[in-house]
């Protein structure tokens, strides 16, 4: 069954939930949550990476890797007073610094069978990433709170689709002003096999839900997540590639970035239906 089918089934299921008033918020058991999420990618800046580059007015300027924002939307149902279940859709936008030093390299065997190894001093802009997650989750209210009001934990496992919305990264060759060379490098910059990755997200979060009105609540909370990425074997082979950034390198860089981005902040509104 595809995702659309699952969602449709879930929505239908929610619509059959009994209207018993004992559970939920002012008797409303179904609630929609809309959130913004973000994080200061502290860990990867401290432990993971040196500064990368962002393009500004056609030139690449050194910058910390600060972009990590997203939104979430989920449809939930309170099953019992302290427990709720929901399906969440989220998209998260962040970026990866592909370079460890201001140099790009490649190593491959050309058509004549000669092993080619190239080193090129260059700056490459951050690789933007869009991660889309579908996540079933459980909301568990702490102590005697009633979902969706009060302090609650949330736990979920999500399916991630990691995509690169802009593969045409800005580069700047340090020892050359040849525009053709730069164009050639850009053409072969990212391995075309690594078009997207898939993975899982194991999430635990907690948040405080402050009621604003009889239908709307404001919530604020934090999430910790462990990201797992599929196709490790496929992309971690020591393959040769004429691309400056092979599939292996992309896989590892994205994987590392996801691992370090474990802690995020989220806030939003809950609407009871």
């Amino acid at each position: 069954m595809n995702i659309k089918g699952i969602l449709l089934g879930y929505l239908l299921g929610c619509s059959f939930v009994s209207g018993a008033q004992e559970v939920g918020y002012y008797g409303h058991r179904i609630f929609l949550e809309l959130d913004g999420q973000g994080q200061i990618p502290l860990l990867q800046n401290v432990f993971g990476e040196r500064k990368g580059y962002v393009s500004k007015n056609g030139t690449l300027n050194s910058s910390y890797n600060l972009l990590d924002l997203g939104y979430r939307a989920s449809l939930n149902v309170a099953i019992t007073e302290p427990v709720g279940f929901g399906i969440e859709f989220s998209q998260r936008f962040y970026q990866v610094n592909l370079q460890s030093i201001d140099e790009i390299t490649r190593n491959f065997t050309d058509t004549s069978g000669t092993m080619v190894t190239e080193y090129l001093p260059a700056k490459v802009a951050y690789l933007p990433i869009r991660e889309t997650v579908f996540m079933p989750k459980l909301l568990i209210a702490l102590n005697d709170s009633r979902v969706p009001c009060g302090f609650a934990s949330e736990i979920g496992i999500g399916y991630s689709l990691i995509q690169f919305p802009n593969r045409n990264l800005d580069i700047e060759l340090l020892n050359s002003t040849n525009a053709d060379q730069a164009a050639q490098v850009k053409e072969k910059l990212l391995d075309s096999r690594a078009e997207e990755f898939r993975g899982l997200v194991f999430m635990y979060g907690f948040r405080m839900n402050y009621p604003i009105s009889k239908r709307v609540l404001f919530h604020i909370g934090f999430r910790y997540q462990y990201a797992f990425q599929f196709s490790k074997k496929k992309f971690r082979r020591m393959d040769e590639s004429e691309y400056w950034f092979s599939g292996r390198e992309l896989w590892s860089k994205v994987n590392l970035r996801r691992q370090l981005g474990i802690f995020s902040f989220g806030t939003g509104l809950t609407f009871t239906l």
Partner: peptide, 20 residues
């Protein structure tokens, strides 16, 4: 009945508890 919750003493925290 006793309930121990981590909620502020706001109008709707109290109201939703009483409603239930």
């Amino acid at each position: 009945r006793s309930y121990y919750v981590n909620e502020p003493a706001s109008r709707h925290s109290i109201g939703s508890r009483l409603n239930g």
